[in-house]
């Protein structure tokens, strides 16, 4: 699944591929729903038309020409958090600013989670001092292909359309 989706992410700009891709995505979304008991948006192969809107899978993924992850950074000690804090867990400071996390990093830890229909690689990526938890995409989930210290970069892929035609975009990290 990871492989296929990262490939389709690369094809993102090809307008004429859209229709078939939609069907594919919808199928993917359906499969995911079935196998993981996850309720996302239900889409039919013949279903909704793309309405031009996109929504990130999590709110710290910023979409656009060059997608990136955004952290809340403590103004006094620069500690970063992907969710909100009332006071900094590191220094108790109460002022934060938004910070852009580097899109490239190295894998400092991983596990190949083998339960369920498809194995996937969970990894911790050190993006220039900011640790990110991610699923690795575009790489075979085997200990031969995934290695500690491997360089990776942020990549996004579509998750499918909802009934209003809004497309959800998720992120992963792929070999750089």
């Amino acid at each position: 699944m990871a492989k296929a989706t990262s490939k389709s992410a690369k094809k993102k700009s090809k307008a004429d591929a859209k229709k078939t891709k939609n069907a594919k995505n919808a199928k993917n979304a359906k499969n995911t729903k079935k196998t993981k008991k996850k309720a996302g948006a239900a889409t039919k192969a013949s279903g909704p038309k793309r309405n031009g809107k996109q929504i990130p899978f999590v709110d710290y993924l910023v979409l656009g020409k060059t997608p990136y992850l955004r952290a809340n950074e403590c103004k006094s000690c620069a500690a970063r958090f992907f969710d909100r804090r009332n006071a900094c867990a590191s220094c108790s400071g109460t002022e934060f600013k938004r910070a852009r996390v580097k899109n490239r990093g190295i894998v400092t830890s991983f596990s190949i989670v083998a339960m369920g229909p498809q194995p996937y690689v969970s990894a911790i990526v050190d993006c220039d001092g900011t640790s990110v938890r991610t699923t690795l995409i575009g790489v075979e989930p085997t200990p031969e292909k995934v290695t500690l210290g491997m360089p990776v970069k942020l990549a996004t892929y579509p998750m499918g359309l909802d009934t209003e035609g809004t497309e959800a975009i998720a992120f992963g990290f792929a070999p750089a």
Binding site: P56, F57, D83, T135
Partner: peptide
């Protein structure tokens, strides 16, 4: 907390 559109398990690494 992260405004996630679905379960993050497998999508954003693992929590198991």
């Amino acid at each position: 907390r992260y405004g996630a559109l679905g379960s993050t398990e497998g999508r954003i690494g693992t929590n198991i």
